[in-house]
Each structure stands twice: as C-alpha cells, then as structure tokens.
Amino acid sequence: MRIEEKSSAYTCIKFSREGRILTATLSRPQAMNAVNAALHEELSRLFCDLADDEGSDVLVLTGEGKAFCAGGDLIWLQEAIDDPEVFLRMGGEAKRILFSQLELEKPLICRLNGAATGLGASLALACDMTIASSNAVIGDPHVSVGLVAGDGGAILWSQLVGFARAREYLFTGKLAKAEEAERIGLINRVVAAEQLDDAVYGLARELAAGATRAIRWTKIVTNTPLKALAHQLFDMGLAYESMSNVTRDHQEAVNAFRERRRPAFTGK
C-alpha cells in the first residue's frame, strides 16, 4: 500500500515523492511545527506507515516553513498538567514514535531546515543521517520547562556525542548552532540554506540507486545496539518525565512561557 491511500488520516504531516524517495513534512508552520495532540498521535503511526509504503526505498523527514519542529505545543503541555491521563496517553504514543523510528528498515534522512528542540531534536537525531541548514539550531530543553528528557533525548544524545557533552546540553537545555552540532558529531553535515535540498536529495538519490537490501540490512545491524539501549531505558525515562509533569516547577515554566518571562524555579 502507498501512503497516499492513508493520507486522509494525516492533518499535520504532508507527503511528496521523487521516484523511490518519499518525503514526510511536519506541517504546522504557523506554530513552528510544534507538536500538539494531533501531530503527536500522527507521529506515533507515521514510521509504520512509511515502512509499509510500497513506492519508496529512501525517506526524508523535514519541517514546513522556517522550523523543523519546536517541541511540545504550550496548550498541549497545559492539558497534560491539568489531566494526567493526557500525559499517560502521550507516553504510550511517545514509545511508539521512538521505537517505530528505530525499527524502520528504510534509510531515513533528516532535512534539518530550522530549529529542532525537545521532541523535534529527538526526531532529528533518531534519523539515520542529519543534514542541516546553516541557520538551524538543535537542543533538548526539557529541563527548561521543568520536565525530564524522557522521550528519547537522554538515550540518543549520549550515544552521539558522549556522556560529558550530552549531560551539559541536557542539564542546561541550551541549543547548539548547526556548525557546533556538526563539530561535536551530533549531526552529519551543515550546508548553506540554499544548498540544503541539493545536499539532502543528492544523498537520497545516491542511496536510492544503491543495493537496497544491503543498505536496509546494514541499518538493522547498526541500529541493534541502540534499540537494545532504548528498550532498557525508555520506560524509566518516561516514568521520570511523568513525575516531572506534575511538579510546581513545570507549571511555573509553562506559566512563564505564556507570560513571556523567565521562570522562577523553586525545586518543587
């Protein structure tokens, strides 16, 4: 089945093709592609649908507009505070997002066209290769909103840049400019914004012209240690994030963001 036959089930993700290359574009540009309940649910089945798509061998993930994905939507975060059942539902979806992305056999390239933060960063880093525009930034500022980086960040960052650098970025929530992200090995390559499509789709065409089965099976072997680590750690990270969802500091961070001021954390 081709994904176009399921496209009516997607309201926040668009699809386009070039030969055997299929592009999925996060499409909430008015909100910098921030993740709300609808987009989160769609992401929880996206990678399974991409895996089943009969018309593609190589996949590209990108964002519409100036951002790749600006993490969690403010209104959605408040809903999860007000009703913990919302967060529990989010947790199940978050697990499906990460594991289905890691289980995907087709090579997946991230076209990092702009800011990728929080879940957006995890989506980018769980891709097989990430090529960024020079104006992109990436980071996991969960702690900046009083949350644990439990939806993949604490697993992915340390494997890519080592524990020392991962702790610095995860504990402070600071963002890395594209050039710095490339320097420390977080992403593969940085190019000028006007060269991004040539770089991404040049690589995609190279892979599409390659030995499809050999590439897929090499990916399976390469991803096996990462999948084992995710199975070991993800539930614990999600449990701690669930606990942080009901802290006063998280509510304060959401309030501060809404009021456009710095949060005053109390450690509660």
Rank of each mutant, 00 (worst) to 15 (best):
P84Q: 07
E252F: 02
W157T: 01
F68G: 05
Y240C: 10
P107V: 06
Q159Y: 00
S158K: 13
A264Y: 01
L61Y: 02
E79M: 13
A264M: 04
A132C: 12
C127P: 04
L102Q: 05
V148W: 03
G152H: 00
G72A: 13
Q78I: 10
R205M: 09
Y240M: 13
A211V: 06
A37N: 09
L233T: 02
I184H: 07
K219A: 05
E42W: 08
A181G: 07
D197F: 09
G120P: 06
A116H: 10
R189T: 12
V191Q: 03
L102W: 03
S144M: 11
A115P: 08
V161K: 05
Q159R: 11
H40Y: 08
A31Q: 12
A9R: 14
E194F: 08
K95N: 10
M236Q: 13
Y10P: 08
I184L: 09
D151T: 06
G120N: 06
V145Q: 05
D128K: 09
L46M: 10
V254D: 03
L186C: 06
A199M: 04
R258T: 04
S144W: 00
P141A: 08
A38Y: 06
R258D: 04
D83K: 12
F15W: 05
C110R: 09
A228L: 01
A253S: 13
S158G: 14
K106A: 08
S242T: 15
A121T: 03
A256N: 02
E4A: 09
L108H: 12
K268H: 12
G114Q: 11
E64K: 10
R248E: 15
A176V: 03
A34D: 09
R17P: 00
L43E: 06
E168W: 09
S16M: 09
S44V: 06
Y10T: 10
L238P: 03
A192N: 13
A214M: 12
K6M: 11
I75Q: 14
A126T: 11
G267Q: 11
M90I: 14
C110A: 14
G202P: 08
T25Y: 01
V35H: 01
R2G: 02
D53V: 05
Q159M: 04
A193Y: 07
R45V: 14
E259I: 00
G118Q: 09
T222F: 05
F257E: 02
